[in-house]
C-alpha cells in the first residue's frame, strides 16, 4: 500500500475528532472518504498533510512514517492537497497559483536569475508552460491570467486542483472538490479525478456528493464520530447496514 493510516487518533481537548482510524490507499487508486458532518474527514486530511500532528497512531507513505513531520516535508515526500474552504493565493493569478504549486518540481537557483543566465529564463518559460498546460487540463485556459479572487467558486476549485497537481504528487488529497459546483462541472471533475488516477497519482477524496463518490472511487472508507465504520468497494459500502444507519439514523437501519 502506498499510503496507510494505522490507528490514527487525534483529540482536541477531551474530544477525539479522529479515533483510531485505519485505512490504506494503493497506487493509482481513488479512495473515497465519506461520513456525516463532523465525522472527522477534514481532520484526517489535516493529519495526513501535516497541518496538525496526530495524538497517536502511524501514518506511513511508501514504507516510511510521515506522521509528525512538518507539512512542507510531507509535501516534498509527495502528498499535496486542496482545501474545503478554498485557500488560493487570492492576489495572484490562476497561472501564478499553479506556479507556486510547482515549487517542489522547479530547479531554479536564484543566482542564475541574478546573473541573467539563459538557463534561468528557459526554466521559467518551461515552468510557465507547464502551469498553463495544467490549467488547460482542468479547463481553465481562458481564465489563466485572471486574479484568483475574481474567479467563480467552481473555477477556484479547479485552479486548486491544478495547483495540487503541479508538484506531480504521489497522493493528492481532495477535500470536497465539487462543493458549490453545478452538475456539468461535477461531471468534469469526476473525469478529471479518474484521469489523475490513471496517470498514476493516488487520490484520497473527501466528498459529500455520494453519487460522485460511488462513480469514481475504487474503494471507500466511511467515518462516523472519528471511527471507521465501513471499508470496501462502493457496492459493499452501499449495502453496509452500519453505513445506512450512520447516514439515515438508527431507526431506519433497524
Amino acid at each position: 500500500m502506498l499510503l496507510s493510516l494505522q490507528g490514527v487518533r487525534r483529540t482536541f481537548g477531551g474530544l477525539a475528532a479522529v479515533d483510531g482510524a485505519s485505512l490504506a490507499v494503493g497506487t493509482g487508486e481513488v479512495h473515497g472518504l465519506i461520513g456525516p458532518n463532523g465525522a472527522g474527514k477534514t481532520t484526517l486530511l489535516n493529519l495526513v498533510s501535516g497541518l496538525i500532528p496526530p495524538t497517536s497512531g502511524a501514518i506511513v507513505l511508501d514504507g516510511e512514517r510521515i506522521d509528525g513531520l512538518a507539512s512542507h516535508v510531507i509535501a516534498a515526500r509527495g502528498i499535496t492537497r486542496t482545501y474545503q474552504n478554498i485557500r488560493l493565493f487570492s492576489a495572484l493569478t490562476a497561472a501564478d497559483n499553479v506556479l507556486v504549486g510547482a515549487h517542489l518540481k522547479r530547479n531554479a537557483p536564484l543566482w542564475r536569475r541574478m546573473a541573467f543566465l539563459p538557463s534561468a529564463a528557459a526554466e521559467e518559460r518551461a515552468a510557465r508552460a507547464a502551469a498553463l498546460a495544467l490549467l488547460a487540463r482542468v479547463g481553465m485556459s481562458e481564465r489563466a491570467f485572471e486574479r484568483a479572487s475574481n474567479l467563480s467558486y467552481g473555477e477556484q476549485r479547479r485552479v486548486e486542483i491544478a495547483r495540487a497537481l503541479a508538484s506531480s504528487p504521489r497522493v493528492m488529497l481532495l477535500d470536497e472538490p465539487t462543493a458549490g459546483m453545478n452538475p456539468g462541472e461535477v461531471t468534469a471533475i469526476a473525469d478529471l479525478i479518474r484521469g489523475v488516477a490513471r496517470a498514476g497519482h493516488s487520490v484520497l477524496l473527501v466528498e459529500h456528493n455520494v453519487k460522485l463518490v460511488m462513480a469514481v472511487c475504487d474503494r471507500i472508507t466511511v467515518l462516523d464520530f472519528g471511527k471507521v465504520i465501513a471499508d470496501g468497494t462502493p457496492a459493499e459500502v452501499g449495502r453496509d447496514p452500519a453505513v445506512i444507519a450512520a447516514y439515515l439514523g438508527g431507526e431506519a437501519a433497524a
Binding site: 512542507h72 510531507i74 492537497r81 493565493f89 507556486v100 515549487h103 536564484l110
Partner: peptide, 30 residues
C-alpha cells in the same frame, strides 16, 4: 537589483505565497 530579480523567481513566488497564506504555502512544499 536583488529585490527586482527575486520578484518573479521561484523564491519570489514562494514569498508571495507565504505572505498570502503561510499554512497553505507550506502544504505546497515551501
Amino acid at each position: 537589483f536583488v529585490l527586482w530579480r527575486i520578484r518573479g523567481s521561484r523564491a519570489g513566488y514562494a514569498l508571495e505565497a507565504i505572505r498570502e497564506d503561510e499554512p497553505a504555502a507550506r502544504t505546497m512544499g515551501i
